[in-house]
Design a protein around this nucleic acid. Structure first.
Length: 642
RNA sequence: GCCGGCGUAGCUCAGCGGUAGAGCAGCUGAUUCGUAAUCAGCAGGUCGCGGGUUCGAAUCCCAUCGCCGGCUCCA
C-alpha cells in the first residue's frame, strides 16, 4: 500500500497509508481529544472527517468550541430536522437549511401548515434518527445526474438551485434514505449530534423574495452538550425578562394603545422624564461640539418633497394630507427645513461647516407586520443633524461625527461594529458624486483605523452611509447611529457658498444621527440595563420611604430639599411596612431608597439603601446630594467643548 | 404586506356549548411596623369588534382589528 506524508500545523509530519480518512489521520496526531472534532481542513480546504486522503498534505483539526465548529454541528442538525420533517410529512419539499448565528433553520414548502405544536413530534423523530447513528455520506456526481436525481425525488427547489449552479460536479449528503444537495462538511454520523432544540416556526419567502412562494421555516439550535444548550436557553429567557415592552409597562414608562393606533407611543410621566433627561443631555452635548439647534415644521408642501427626490423615492413610506387644496407631506426626515435654513442667506466659506441639529419628530409608514414595541414605530424622534461643509472639510467632519457617536456608545457601555453601505439600485445622483461620497466615508474610517464591514447596495437613496451597529448587554446588534454623505441634495436645492476665490461653490452635506431613533434607543437601553438605569438617567433617582406615619413630616422636608437640589425624587409615605415599600422601590429599580425613621429624624438625616441592597448607613442630606451629583457626572466629559 | 400563533378584570392566567373565575394590583378599614409582600372587607369584565350556527356562544364557524414569532423592509 502506498504511503502519504501528512503534516499537522506545529507537529512533525507523519506517514500514513494512502486512503486514510482525515479523522483517523487527525487522531494519529492527537490520540485522544475531548474537544468535539467535527471536520478537518486539508491544504486549506474544509472537508469531512470521513474524507479519504491520497496525497501528501497538511491537515488541521476543526473542532473545539468556536463558531465554525458549531456551524457544522448545526448544519448537520438542520439536515436531521429536514429528514425528520420529510419522514413525518412526505408532502414537504426541501429547500435550504443553513446554520445561522445561534442556531439553524430549514425552509420547507409544505401544504400542511407546521405550527409550534408539531415541534415536539419533529424533535422526537430527530432523536430517533440520532439514535440510529446513520452515517452521513458525501457523494460527488455530475450536475446532470444530480438534476435527474432530485427531479425523480420530486424536489423542485433543489432542481432550481442546481440549474443555477455553474459547476459541473456537485456534492450530495446522504443519511439513510434521505439526501440533500449540500456543500458540507458534515459530522460523520447522525449519532454525533448531542443537544438540540427546535425553537420556533415562521414564514419565509423562497430566496428572500416576497414575490416568490412563502415557505415554512423551522428554527432550532444545537450544541455539543446539554449544559451549553441549557445556558443558551437561559439567555433567551433572560432576554424575555428584559423585553422593553414588558418592562415599559412594569416601570410605567410608556404604552402603545390600539385605540390610538399601531406604532404610536404614549409616554407616561416616567418615560417622558427619561426622554427629557436623555434629550437635554444630548442637546447640551451638541451645543458643546459646535452644533446649532433648529426646528422644522411637521408638514411641508409636497412640491418640496418632489424637489428633494423623496416623493419619487420614498413616497410609500410617507403620509400626505391636503390643506386648502394644497398637498402637504408629513416629514419622514428632517433635512428639508435644514436645507432652507442654509439657503436663507448667502454663505461664505468662513461660515462653514454649518452644523444644524434637530430633535426632529418624523413619521414613516411602516408595514403593519414590522411594528415592534419601541424599536419599530410609525412616529419617532431622531437626534438628527445635517452638516453643510466644503469638500475640504468633509473628512474632518466625518471623523468628528464618528468620534461623537463612539463616545456615546462608551457612555452607555455599548460595544459596536461599523458598516459601510454603498449605492443601492434605486438611487439619485451621478456616479461621480457617489464615488466621491463613498470615498470620503471610507477615508475617514481608514484615517481613524476603525475596522468595518462593507454592505454593498445598502445605502440610502441619496448617498452612501456608515452605520454603527451597537451590541447590547445580551450581545444583540441594533442599528442606531448612521452617517450619510450626500452630494445630491445640495445640488437639487442649488446650495452654494462663496469661496476664498470669490466664486460660488457647492457645499457637501452630511446627514447623521447618533442614537438614531430616540424611541428605538430607549427600547434598547431598557433591555441593556434591564430597566435599572444608571443614576444620571434614572427617571426616579431616589425614593423616600418612611417607617411609620410619625416620620412623614421629616420625610416631606427631605423630599423638598432633594427636589430643590435638582434630584429626581419621590416620597412614599403610604401606610405600609418598610419592607413592603423597599420591595416596591426595588422592583421599580430606583437607584436609592432613603429610609426615614426615628434615628433619621433624630439625626436630621437619611439612611440610603442602594438598589443592589447595600445599606449606606445614616448620613446628612448634603452628603447624599453630593453623592448623586458625583454619580450623575459621568456625562461631563461628553459635555466638554471639543 | 405575507406565513403561523394568540386576544377573558389594570397585570399574569384558568374556564373551551348551559346564567363569568383566581392571584397580584386598586379602593375602604384595622395595624404604626427598620431594609424584597400585615390582616380583613369591597369593588372591578357587553370574554378585541362585527356577523353566523344553536333553544342557548367566552367556548363552534366566518370576517375584521390588534398583538406575538418570523419573512420582506428599516431609525
Amino acid at each position: 500500500m502506498n504511503e502519504i506524508r501528512i503534516s499537522l500545523k506545529g507537529e512533525e509530519s507523519q506517514r500514513f497509508p494512502s486512503g486514510i480518512t482525515a479523522g483517523e489521520a487527525l487522531k494519529g496526531f492527537i490520540p485522544s481529544t475531548d474537544n468535539p472534532l467535527v471536520a478537518a481542513r486539508v491544504d486549506g480546504n474544509l472537508v469531512d472527517l470521513t474524507h479519504s486522503l491520497d496525497h501528501d498534505c497538511t491537515i488541521e483539526a476543526v473542532g473545539g468550541s468556536n463558531e465554525e465548529t458549531l456551524d457544522i454541528l448545526r448544519h448537520s442538525t438542520s439536515h436531521v430536522m429536514a429528514q425528520a420533517v420529510q419522514s413525518l410529512y412526505p408532502e414537504a419539499k426541501i429547500t435550504i437549511g443553513p446554520a445561522i448565528e445561534n442556531g439553524f433553520y430549514y425552509d420547507f414548502d409544505c401544504p400542511r401548515p407546521i405550527s409550534v405544536e408539531d415541534l415536539p413530534r419533529i424533535e422526537a423523530k430527530m432523536a430517533e434518527i440520532i439514535r440510529q447513528a446513520l452515517p452521513i455520506q458525501r457523494r460527488e456526481l455530475d450536475r446532470e445526474e444530480a438534476l435527474r436525481l432530485f427531479a425523480e425525488r420530486g424536489e423542485p427547489y433543489k432542481v432550481e438551485l442546481l440549474e443555477e449552479l455553474d459547476s459541473a460536479r456537485v456534492s450530495l449528503y446522504e443519511q439513510g434514505t434521505w439526501v440533500d444537495l449540500c456543500r458540507g462538511p458534515h459530522l460523520p454520523t447522525t449519532g454525533d449530534l448531542k443537544a438540540f432544540k427546535l425553537t420556533g416556526v415562521a414564514g419565509a419567502y423562497w430566496r428572500g423574495d416576497e414575490r416568490k412562494p412563502q415557505l415554512q421555516r423551522i428554527y432550532g439550535t444545537a450544541f455539543f452538550s446539554q449544559q451549553e444548550l441549557d445556558e443558551h436557553l437561559r439567555l433567551l429567557e433572560e432576554a424575555r425578562k428584559r423585553d422593553h415592552r414588558k418592562l415599559g409597562r412594569e416601570l410605567d414608562l410608556f404604552s402603545i394603545s390600539d385605540e390610538v393606533g399601531p406604532g404610536l407611543v404614549i409616554y407616561h410621566p416616567k418615560g417622558a422624564l427619561l426622554r427629557f433627561v436623555l434629550e437635554t443631555f444630548e442637546k447640551e452635548a451638541h451645543l458643546r461640539r459646535g452644533y446649532q439647534m433648529a426646528i422644522g415644521p411637521q408638514l411641508l408642501k409636497t412640491d418640496l418633497w418632489k424637489q428633494s427626490g423623496h416623493f419619487d423615492h420614498y413616497r410609500e413610506n410617507m403620509y400626505f394630507t391636503e390643506v386648502e387644496g394644497q398637498s402637504y407631506g408629513i416629514k419622514p426626515m428632517n433635512c428639508l427645513a435644514h436645507m432652507l435654513i442654509y439657503k436663507s442667506k448667502i454663505r461664505s466659506y468662513r461660515d462653514l461647516p454649518l452644523r444644524l441639529f434637530e430633535m426632529g419628530i418624523v413619521h414613516r409608514h411602516e408595514r403593519s407586520g414590522v411594528l415592534h414595541g419601541l424599536t419599530r414605530v410609525r412616529q419617532f424622534t431622531q437626534d438628527d443633524a445635517h452638516i453643510l461643509c466644503t469638500p475640504e472639510q468633509l473628512n474632518d467632519e466625518i471623523k468628528s461625527i464618528l468620534d461623537f457617536a463612539l463616545d456615546m456608545m462608551h457612555l452607555f457601555g455599548f460595544d459596536y461594529e461599523l458598516e459601510m453601505s454603498t449605492r443601492p439600485a434605486k438611487s439619485i445622483g451621478t456616479d461621480q458624486d457617489w464615488d466621491r461620497a463613498t470615498t470620503a466615508l471610507m477615508n475617514a474610517l481608514r484615517d481613524r483605523g476603525f475596522p468595518y464591514q462593507i454592505c454593498a447596495g445598502e445605502g440610502a437613496f441619496y448617498g452612501p452611509k456608515i452605520d454603527v451597529k451597537l451590541k447590547d448587554a445580551l450581545n444583540r446588534r441594533w442599528q442606531c447611529a448612521t452617517i450619510q454623505c450626500d452630494f445630491t441634495l445640495p445640488d437639487r436645492f442649488d446650495l452654494s457658498y462663496i469661496g476664498p476665490d470669490g466664486e460660488k461653490h457647492r457645499p457637501v452635506m452630511l446627514h447623521r444621527v447618533l442614537l438614531g431613533s430616540i424611541e428605538r434607543f430607549l427600547g434598547v437601553l431598557i433591555e441593556h440595563y434591564a430597566g435599572a438605569f444608571p443614576t444620571w438617567l434614572a427617571p426616579v433617582q431616589a425614593i423616600v420611604v418612611t417607617v411609620t406615619d410619625r416620620h412623614i413630616p421629616h420625610a416631606e422636608k427631605v423630599y423638598r430639599t432633594l427636589l430643590e437640589a435638582g434630584i429626581r425624587v419621590e416620597n412614599d409615605t403610604r401606610n405600609e411596612k418598610l419592607s413592603y415599600k423597599i420591595r416596591e422601590a426595588q422592583l421599580q429599580k430606583v437607584p436609592y431608597m432613603l429610609v426615614v425613621g426615628n434615628r433619621e429624624v433624630a439625626a436630621d438625616g437619611i439612611s440610603p439603601r442602594r438598589r443592589d441592597g447595600k445599606d449606606l448607613g445614616l448620613m446628612e442630606l448634603p452628603r447624599f446630594i453630593d453623592l448623586i451629583r458625583q454619580e450623575s457626572a459621568v456625562t461631563s466629559s461628553m459635555l466638554r467643548a471639543r
